[in-house]
Nucleic acid binder design. Structure first.
Lengths: 209, 209
DNA sequence: ATAAATCAAACAAACGTTTAATTGATAATA
DNA sequence: TATTATCAATTAAACGTTTGTTTGATTTAT
């Protein structure tokens, strides 16, 4: 895939980038090929030319998302880490990933064009792989509580928890006047990591001291 | 609104029901009015007649969702509860709500037709109200850690955590062979409540004893 | 000279909405 | 009691757009 992109023109990448922005803002089916072509400054027919159709763009984006997610999770495994540092590093890395690739992540988590068979199958397969990696990480993290049968609960729960802020960000910023800077996301990542580690009980005692 | 429904025929309710199923399965913009009309056994023009357009159905569904969410949260406040029982009751009630109204909840949480101005504004307003109720509940629950400035993090995080299973359910059931019965959701609700209360640390020690 | 890249134009299909006519039941009139 | 008036409910058909895709010619670079 990396090779293809260099053989093909910039248009390929511009289409992916423009689509990612548009798909993240609104749902896949509500974005038209002409809107994409305009934003990417390419002719409409380039979409079918490069991606075989509109759905092909989404598949490209989803593949990038899952690759990114996999490597982020795997890179978060550091053998010498304590359990606490494991979780904190993991949460920090995931938040970093979402911040630097917000659009792709929002699409990967929330876009649900299940009526496109290719997309649906890809999601099933990748979810399966995610569960396996989740199991690996659980044991490597020495999270002994996390039996196989619980991975499918806690895995999605953890990821959804972390992404939730970014899906609500637009609404929240219209209500509160918060600056979403590095400091904010340090706190954000740490807060959720501590919640995940110790719950609101441990969290409250720690903060009150 | 309750009155209107009795003046109007069954068609009104059939349209809402059919749309909820379809919008939950696929995104709002990928569902056509003819598909809705077929499933509801009504003429296409009834949609504009009753709802003023396709978007009107979504607004009706979202209003029901937010009303439901508000009353579920408020009904979870029992003054005599301990902190632990407060959270467990809250989580139990939310899971019950999602189970009995899965479609409406999936739409309320994940459907994002932000390019429909009326829908977007409604979501902003209701999110605002949700945050206020979140604050009320936090203090009533004696969750002293939950300052105002953290509600906008923990509120969405908690809800997203609980809904995550239902958004992933289709994928998960293709991987694992799990029966999603009453027992499963008792465990599910309790597991996430304990995670929220004590984190994976407290959770593991409790389970290993 | 060859092949990839880009273009304007047209394609049929599906989209949401509107129209005007008709049905059905209820209320008012004679 | 029979007839008329009224209005909500429902229908088939057509409306003009917009949809994603394809075609065939043209440009660009190798």
């Amino acid at each position: 895939m990396e090779n293809n992109k260099k053989i093909w023109g910039d248009a390929f990448e511009r289409i992916v980038e423009a689509s990612a922005e548009l798909f993240a803002e609104n749902a896949f089916h509500s974005v038209g090929v002409r809107e994409i072509a305009n934003k990417a400054n390419v002719n409409i027919s380039m979409i079918s030319y490069y991606f075989g159709g509109k759905a092909g763009i989404l598949i490209e984006i989803l593949n990038r998302f899952f690759d990114m997610q996999f490597s982020t999770l795997k890179n978060s495994i550091v053998e010498t880490d304590s359990k606490e540092e494991s979780i904190k590093r993991l949460f920090r890395n995931i938040v970093d990933m979402i911040r630097t690739h917000t659009n792709i992540c929002l699409i990967g988590f929330s876009d649900l064009p299940n009526n496109v068979p290719e997309v649906y199958e890809l999601k099933v397969n990748k979810t399966h792989q995610m569960m396996e990696i989740g199991n690996q990480i659980s044991t490597r993290f020495c999270i002994d509580f996390c039996k196989d049968e619980l991975t499918h609960i806690l895995g999605p729960a953890m990821m959804s928890m972390l992404i939730s802020h970014f899906t609500h960000k637009n609404f929240i910023s219209q209500i509160y006047k918060i600056e979403f800077d590095n400091n904010y996301y340090d706190t954000y990542s740490n807060t959720l990591a501590e919640l995940f580690l110790y719950g609101i009980t441990g969290f409250s005692t720690e903060k009150n001291q």
